[in-house]
Design a protein around this nucleic acid. Structure first.
Lengths: 213, 213
DNA sequence: TATGTATTTGACTGACCAGTCAAATACTTT
DNA sequence: AAAGTATTTGACTGGTCAGTCAAATACATA
């Protein structure tokens, strides 16, 4: 009995993600999202209790697909260093794709939204915090490998190291958004990650001055 | 002829800075600011052409006083390392004060606002970008000293190094805001800065695990 | 005290905001 | 085809938004 499920909800989630990522939570209205998704506002409130709840659901849905890709990188039979290199490249590519699609550097959707609404919407703040934590734990097994093969000191606080890696990435990505420029992200992210991990980098990769967007 | 200047404009700037720093640009209305400053909206638009223009003026005014303190730290006759240590402590203290005053971790007002509005208000994005740049140049003379005394390689790209220092700070401060927690900022900022500078840190200062807000 | 200007006020727009709801519709099952 | 439920719709609310403006007021000068 009843009707089959439709794609209305996921369409709202995707549209909201697109719009909020480009601009911000405060600059995008429920009407904007509905209009862009070609869905009436009554339907919106059939699926979501509030704008804030939609934002949280959007973060979760978006992170779920992002998480899969990160886990994939860190499950490959490559060396720990290569994994972090791949992570840096992956992040740059994601930003590049968004740049090509939206015409501007978009930054990290979770951190931007989390930072914006941390002071007003506890649920959004909590979700952003949770996502940071979930992402940092993905590194654990790889960090353990690095400890095992003496690339990291045995007394390394893995939880803290994971948090530092995330922090390094988020700093670079946020500054790229503010500057609307991907050059530094492209040139410095790998190096910053290695530095955070306390690893030496091949000298051939230390050039600072590539000129390209 | 005419009337003496009043403090209305600066009161609006301070109030706006307070409110936006705590929450966000989008969550604070012109009415909110006027109400908190006990100034009528007509007066607001006597001094500012728009809400966005106020935000830019707020950023400039706020950075001017912040800049003085940073320049002071980097003009003291201390060693380069001590200066960066003092910078880390200063940033933590600022966040602690804001925490005590507003009841939450507030983050970096320039970066939060810049990131929030980068996609919507070009003037705000431009001002945030400018502030990042101005702040990073403050480090130049100190970085040069470090090169001169061989604490940094002679081929160091100072502009890039300055940008990396800012990025490191902004990452940590933003994550502290999202987590609404100053512990990691307190424990890790010094170390992260030293790592960004490529310096070794005294082992006595490497403890990760202080437990205190 | 009179004049001129800088500043302040409050009442006002029209658009937009998040959120509501009863009714209409679509589809699945029997 | 009838019954029942999931979904969609559009019209609605009351409040808030950024921004406007003519009139009132304060003050410095002459």
């Amino acid at each position: 009995m009843g009707r089959s499920p439709t794609n209305t909800k996921s369409k709202l989630l995707e549209t909201a993600n697109d719009l909020i990522w480009q601009s911000s939570y405060g600059s995008v209205s429920v009407d904007d999202i509905c209009k862009a998704a070609d869905i009436k506002k009554g339907s919106f409130y059939y699926y979501f209790e509030s704008k804030a709840e939609l934002a949280v659901a959007t973060m979760e849905a978006s992170f779920l697909s992002y998480e899969i890709e990160i886990i994939d990188i860190f499950s490959k039979p490559t060396s720990p260093c290569e994994r972090f290199e791949n992570l840096a490249d992956f992040i740059y590519q994601k930003q590049k794709q968004a740049y090509d699609k939206y015409g501007r550097v978009c930054g990290c959707p979770f951190a931007s939204l989390g930072s914006e609404m941390a002071g007003n919407e506890a649920l959004i703040q909590k979700k952003a915090d949770e996502i940071i934590h979930r992402q940092s734990t993905i590194f654990n097994t790889t960090l353990q490998e690095m400890i095992d093969c003496a690339q990291l000191p045995v007394d390394t606080d893995m939880q803290n190291m994971g948090a530092q890696i995330i922090t390094t990435i988020l700093g670079q990505v946020m500054v790229a958004r503010i500057q609307n420029n991907l050059v530094n992200l492209k040139n410095d992210l790998r190096r910053s990650l290695f530095q955070t991990l306390g690893l030496q980098i091949k000298t051939s990769e230390r050039s600072h001055q590539d000129q390209e967007q």
